[in-house]
């Protein structure tokens, strides 16, 4: 690990995004607009308040998954990765550089969506707003790490997008957003235990409904963070210095 290279990579990724203001605007605004849409779809502050925490987990997860799988795929297919691999850059320098840059974006994205939900849409957060942000950012990093991992199995951007229904949709459906997990069929409930997004959503629900930081919350945080690290390591293993 080399802090200078990691930081240079983060700055490079953020500079690339700066040249693409439309993507940044979409990333920032879409989650907030969807929250607004849902608020009036439920047409009840109470129903919205119940669904909102889970959504704050699902959006950054989904968006980071997509953005990362496409950016890293692009890096793999345009030979910039091959060039970097001949240079004194560690795989983790590259990955953490991406994580810092996308982490910054995810934080802003979630802060905006959560801020708007609390200020105007009637979401009550009993616990700490910081903790809520932390969970959502961990969740975004998890999406990022998974996106990076699957980009190794796609050859085109078209294929990369097709991985979303496989890796993201089942987690979004089973995480408790649509139906509480304990009310689902027992097989699905059991399966949802193996999906990290379930724990992120559980933690977000807990933070919004109570100010207490209990064992379950800590465990959820560890699981989400741990899964993000495992996915990042798997992602690192897919970056090869030598290729066929």
């Amino acid at each position: 690990m080399n802090a200078t290279i990691t930081w240079a990579t983060a700055r490079r990724v953020l500079t690339q995004l700066r040249h693409d203001p439309r993507t940044v605007a979409l990333m920032m605004l879409v989650p907030s607009l969807l929250m607004l849409l849902l608020r009036y779809m439920f047409n009840s502050e109470q129903a919205f308040s119940q669904a909102a925490p889970a959504l704050l987990g699902v959006f950054p997860f989904l968006i980071m998954f997509l953005i990362t799988s496409i950016t890293t795929l692009r890096e793999r297919t345009t030979a910039t990765l091959e060039r970097l691999m001949t240079m004194p850059l560690g795989k983790l320098d590259l990955l953490f550089g991406y994580a810092i840059a996308f982490g910054v974006l995810a934080t802003l994205q979630v802060a905006l969506a959560a801020g708007i939900s609390v200020a105007w849409l009637g979401l009550d957060v009993e616990g700490s707003m910081w903790l809520l942000l932390l969970i959502a950012v961990l969740d975004a990093l998890l999406g990022m790490a998974l996106g990076l991992f699957v980009s190794a199995f796609a050859r085109t951007e078209f294929q990369a997008i097709q991985f979303m229904p496989i890796f993201v949709l089942p987690q979004a459906l089973l995480c408790g957003l649509f139906v509480p997990r304990d009310q689902m069929g027992s097989v699905l409930d059991w399966l949802s235990n193996f999906m990290p997004l379930s724990y992120a959503v559980e933690a977000l629900n807990q933070v919004t409904s109570s100010a207490e930081v209990d064992g379950t919350l800590v465990r959820d945080l560890i699981i989400v963070g741990g899964c993000a690290i495992v996915a990042l390591m798997l992602g690192a293993a897919t970056l090869r210095r030598r290729t066929p």
Binding site: A8, R12, T15, D20, T78, E82, M87
Partner: peptide, 18 residues
């Protein structure tokens, strides 16, 4: 092999740091 969405100078600055 350079980043199409960076300027020539920005891209070189990155590789120089690496």
């Amino acid at each position: 092999a350079t980043y199409g969405d960076l300027t020539v100078r920005e891209s070189l600055r990155y590789f120089a740091s690496v």
